[in-house]
């Protein structure tokens, strides 16, 4: 399986969608789609995320890898497929500004990892709190690039339904590791590939 993860990772980094499709087709002979996600897609994306942290992988490669995986997995595990992971009613948004790349990467990686996530796009404080509360969201992921947007999360959190978990990410949180506590979030993701692990941790703590 390690060899398959490496091959899949190389296909993603080379943006070779055809090779990625062939690896999936070959794996599905003896694996279920969800096993492929858990044993190949998630580790490959984690390795690519680690590569980005260490400077060997470009953010653009991470983004394109997530997109390729998202499309690929949608073909074998459509969004409402019951074989997808047990769902937590999750939503993702970028608060206040137009810098959507970070949110887009996390969204792709989560979907490629078998999660179903509602994409709220760009929201403001009032719109976000109203929608997340009405839809009974359990895990809310908020991405920001600008510091003022990150600080506005302080206004969001007190207005959310009790028990809703908030995970934040984006440049301001990378440069100040205590900022997520300052705004009242439950956890932060240092990079997109951490999102799966962080969601699992947060929900394990909640249950």
């Amino acid at each position: 399986m390690t060899q398959r993860v490496e091959q899949f990772e190389q296909a993603l980094l080379a943006l070779d969608q055809l090779a990625a499709e062939e690896i999936l087709a070959s794996a599905l002979k003896d694996k279920s789609p969800m096993e492929f996600v858990e044993q190949v897609v998630v580790p490959a994306l984690e390795r690519i995320g680690d590569g980005w942290e260490q400077g060997g992988v470009a953010l653009s490669q991470l983004y394109m890898s997530g997109r390729i995986c998202e499309k690929l997995i949608d073909t074998v595990l459509p969004p409402k497929d019951s074989r997808r992971k047990e769902q937590h009613n999750m939503a993702i948004t970028v608060l206040e500004d137009y810098h959507v790349l970070g949110k887009r990467i996390v969204y792709s990686i989560l979907r490629a990892s078998g999660f179903t996530v509602k994409d709220y796009g760009r929201t403001d404080v009032a719109g976000l709190t109203q929608r997340a509360n009405e839809e009974g969201v359990k895990v809310l992921l908020i991405s920001t690039l600008m510091l003022p947007s990150a600080l506005r999360i302080k206004e969001v959190i007190p207005k959310l339904n009790d028990g809703m978990k908030v995970i934040v990410g984006g440049a301001p949180f990378r440069f100040d590791p205590d900022l997520y506590k300052e705004v009242g979030a439950d956890m932060m993701c240092k990079n997109a590939s951490e999102a799966v692990e962080v969601i699992n941790k947060v929900m394990a703590g909640a249950s």
């Binding site: 943006l15 653009s60 137009y98 810098h99 790349l101």
Partner: peptide, 10 residues
Amino acid sequence: GFDKYIELMY
């Protein structure tokens, strides 16, 4: 937008 720009590059 950054996402569309990356797609353009590739």
